[in-house]
């Protein structure tokens, strides 16, 4: 995927253009929104943003994993994981733009790789 990376600075810039606040205040607001979402999730709450998606915390039980390098069995302790479910609005929005270009993006590797010399 031909991709740029959007960061906090870009979000702050977008907020700056949207609301008549200074760049500094815009950046603080972005930070506060992220913090509020994180605080909610850390407190076990789920966060639902309509037409975007929902974040929820799910419990994972203990299971036996393996060190891929040594093959040694190690227990993976029970833990909580964050799950993001995108809303249909977001999924549709992404596919409306990206899918028409589909097909032109596949640069599949030749099976077997390049010929050995």
């Amino acid at each position: 995927m031909a991709g740029n990376t959007v960061t906090r600075a870009d979000l702050a810039e977008a907020v700056f253009r949207e609301v008549g606040l200074s760049r500094n205040e815009s950046a603080r607001l972005v930070e506060s929104v992220l913090k509020l979402v994180m605080d909610g999730l850390a407190g076990g709450d789920s966060v639902k943003i309509s037409s975007f998606g929902s974040f929820s915390v799910r419990m994972k039980g203990q299971r036996i994993g393996r060190n891929p390098k040594t093959g040694e069995e190690v227990p993976i302790l029970p833990r909580k994981v964050l799950v993001f479910r995108a809303s249909h609005v977001l999924k549709d929005r992404i596919n409306r733009v990206l899918s028409p270009r589909a097909g032109a993006t596949s640069t599949e590797a030749v099976p077997g790789g390049p010929p050995a010399t």
């Binding site: 991709g3 740029n4 959007v6 979000l11 977008a14 977001l90 929005r93």
Partner: peptide, 18 residues
């Protein structure tokens, strides 16, 4: 604006790293 901007980025195929 924040969530719209994230959605816009994803629609362009961009990554959003926070």
């Amino acid at each position: 604006k924040i969530f719209d901007e994230i959605g816009d980025a994803l629609s362009r195929g961009d990554r959003v790293e926070l």
